[in-house]
Nucleic acid binder design. Structure first.
Length: 161
DNA sequence: GCCACCGGTGGC
DNA sequence: GCCACCGGTGGC
């Protein structure tokens, strides 16, 4: 969803993690901040069939000013729609590399094991009958968001080693 | 050319 | 010895 409409995005600040989760209204195109990653993932999981609109946020309508503006005061990264919701007990993490060249995605399992790929997830579930019954590999995705180059400050982007 | 994946390692 | 982080690559 690079076209700037109806896409969901989250943000990073100059640290290496995402600190604001945000979605764009499919009607007025304003950005609405979503308080938690969990809520963001819920919206994202059905975004294609069920686009976000301002009125889904309690007490908010398209008449209200945007929560946040898409500009270079923050670095923005854009998720693909319909990524699976992270299974209960797991945590999905995205880490920005220092040079902003790419992000890394991993899941932390309930017992603290870090999973770095679908292959590792599959092996983990095979060894964990307690999860295998109701958690599938397809509940995980390592698809990375697109880093919006136009929101990276020039002094940072052009940093030479 | 991109990206999912994984090996290596430096710093703790 | 671990693990956060980075580089490289194979497959598409």
């Amino acid at each position: 969803m690079e076209k700037g409409q109806q896409s969901k995005r989250h943000l990073v600040n100059t640290s290496n993690f995402i600190d604001i989760w945000s979605v764009q209204c499919g009607e007025c195109f304003k950005w609405r901040v979503i308080p938690t990653q969990e809520e963001f993932e819920e919206i994202r999981s059905t975004f294609a069939e069920d686009p976000f609109v301002c009125s889904k946020k309690p007490g908010i309508s398209c008449d209200d000013p945007a929560d946040i503006e898409y500009d270079d005061s923050r670095i923005w990264v854009i998720d693909k729609p319909n990524l699976p919701k992270t299974p209960a007990g797991f945590r999905r993490k995205l880490v920005m590399r220092k040079d902003f060249s790419k992000m890394d995605c991993y899941y932390d399992s309930p017992n603290g094991k870090r999973l770095r790929s679908l292959a590792e997830v599959a092996r983990f579930l095979d060894k964990s009958p307690e999860y295998e019954e109701d958690i599938l590999v397809s509940d995980f995705s390592f698809t990375l968001p697109k880093i919006m180059e136009d929101t990276i400050p020039p002094d940072v982007a052009k940093k030479v080693i």
